[in-house]
């Protein structure tokens, strides 16, 4: 579609941080997150169900369908997650 413009990497990172805060009910704590912030294993709220909700919410907000074979590495840090999402959008 001619009007379609994919979000920039910075937009994606910002959206990822917003969605983390919303899905994990962090109450604004995510505002201090950077690309280097660790996620899986570092944030107790991020369990396996939260991972599923997180990816679902990102898909719906940003309009992509994630591959079936996504793995834990995509959830290691904010930056890894943003890069994963950007790559999925670009597909």
């Amino acid at each position: 579609m001619p009007t379609r413009s994919d979000p920039t990497p910075m937009d994606v990172t910002r959206e990822v941080i917003n969605v983390l805060d919303e899905v994990l009910s962090l109450g604004g704590r995510a505002a201090s997150f950077t690309r280097e912030t660790h996620l899986l294993g570092a944030i107790p709220e991020l369990d396996s169900m939260a991972v599923a909700t997180l990816i679902t919410t990102l898909e719906e907000r940003l309009g992509f369908v994630a591959d079936d074979d996504l793995d834990g590495e995509a959830f290691a840090t904010v930056g890894a997650l943003a890069d994963f999402v950007s790559a999925q959008i670009a597909q």
Binding site: L40, V51, A52, T56, E59, D69, D71, G72, F75
Partner: peptide, 23 residues
């Protein structure tokens, strides 16, 4: 996208395996 809704519903079967890369 209906495709996304279907994918998400199918994924309910695999939710536990998602983070482990087993989905």
């Amino acid at each position: 996208l209906g495709k996304l809704l279907l994918q998400q519903f199918l994924r309910l079967r695999a939710a536990g395996e998602l983070a482990a890369g087993q989905a």
